[in-house]
């Protein structure tokens, strides 16, 4: 009888596991972004596709080059580099020279992730780090907006040689936020919803981005508190301003314009750079909403989503510390002065 026993493994319990894996969560976010991606290419043309592919090539290349050889397979297997590239690409203007997109991708992985110690250790959203780098280095190319020009378009600037061509054919069709900020001119709601406006290549269609967000909520791939908190606080703060003076954008416009949807649903929800605790998530989200309104209305840039998220990324460790859950069976303590009862 003894020799007929199967060879038993002693893997300690629990043996059961919920089916979601980190890799699947990343892949779900990628799937959720596909409709908006296709729409972006459809509206802005092949040039936009090239920018996207450039950014993705940059991040994957970065992950491959910067990872220890032994971990390459696992690190590429978790799809996080692909997701970073996609998010970065979607937040770039479709007219961007492709080499810049590739460079942005490399920086996103290198400065945004690897130097912190890899996935899970970074403080800032890597895609936004890449974008912030590009905006700081190439401000002109990064604000070269174009109205949707149709599928067959490749922008001349797309094909610019690295560091050689300084002048871009400025097409300057302003974004809805730019129009609002500098000319106090509002864009039709239907254009905002369907994405028929100038802007970054994946952020113009609020509707498709929301649709993907719904999918993510069903799959429980993101923390619903973060987009909900951002939307709420944007509505509240921009609503207050709008009630004071209607020259400020109304809440609906504030919600459906710029990179708010992309940022709120896909970037701020990056688990690594958002708080661990539910209470932390609420504070994080309302902070982002508040900063977005603040920067858009009073700052020098028409758009503030990127800085708002990066700033709140920076306070995430603090939020985590002060929102530690109260241990079962212990009295409430004041989070700012642990040990003291409030």
């Amino acid at each position: 009888m003894t020799q007929k026993d199967p060879k038993l493994r002693v893997l300690p319990s629990p043996l059961l596991k919920q089916p979601n894996t980190s890799a699947r969560v990343m892949r779900d976010v990628i799937y959720a972004l596909l409709p908006a991606t296709v729409a972006g290419v459809w509206l802005f043309g092949v040039g936009a596709l090239l920018v996207l592919l450039g950014a993705i090539a940059g991040t994957i290349w970065g992950e491959y080059v910067f990872s220890p050889v032994a971990e390459r397979k696992i690190r590429l297997g978790d799809s996080s580099a692909l997701l970073t590239g996609l998010l970065l690409g979607l937040s770039l203007p479709p007219t961007l020279p492709i080499w810049m997109a590739v460079l942005g991708g490399l920086v996103a992985i290198g400065l945004g992730k690897i130097i912190w110690g890899g996935l899970g250790h970074n403080f800032f959203n890597p895609a936004l780090v890449g974008r912030a780098f590009l905006l700081a280095t190439f401000p002109a190319a990064m604000t070269n907006w174009n109205a949707p020009a149709g599928l067959a378009t490749i922008y001349q600037s797309n094909l610019a040689w690295p560091f050689l061509q300084g002048n871009y054919d400025m097409i300057t069709s302003a974004t809805p936020l730019g129009l609002m900020k500098f000319q106090h001119h509002s864009t039709a709601f239907s254009n905002l919803i369907f994405g028929n406006t100038g802007g970054c290549l994946g952020e113009t269609s609020a509707l498709l981005l929301l649709l993907g967000g719904g999918y993510l909520l069903i799959r429980r791939a993101i923390d619903w508190r973060i987009p909900a908190g951002i939307f709420l606080s944007v509505i509240v703060f921009s609503g207050i301003l709008w009630l004071i003076n209607t020259k400020y954008p109304d809440p609906i416009f504030a919600l459906s314009s710029g990179s708010l949807m992309l940022g709120a649903i896909y970037m701020a929800t990056d688990p690594v750079t958002s708080p661990l605790t539910p209470r932390g998530a609420w504070i994080f989200a309302s902070g982002i909403g508040f900063l977005i309104v603040l920067i858009r209305v009073f700052g020098g840039f028409p758009e503030g989503v990127m800085y708002a998220i990066l700033l709140m990324n920076a306070v995430t460790p603090l939020l985590d510390r002060i929102t530690q859950p109260r241990m079962f069976g212990t009295p409430k303590t004041n989070p700012l002065q642990p040990g003291k009862k409030s």
């Binding site: 894996t21 980190s22 890799a23 969560v25 696992i74 297997g77 978790d78 890899g118 996935l119 899970g120 250790h121 923390d223 688990p271 690594v272 750079t273 958002s274 708080p275 661990l276 605790t277 539910p278 998530a281 530690q324 859950p325 109260r326 241990m327 079962f328 069976g329």
Partner: peptide
């Protein structure tokens, strides 16, 4: 397959003793 902790907070929301 073990991946790095992505700080998703699911364990925090699972722990009945409110640990981290």
């Amino acid at each position: 397959q073990e991946y790095p902790c992505i700080r998703c907070g699911r364990c925090v929301e699972a722990c009945p003793y409110f640990l981290n």
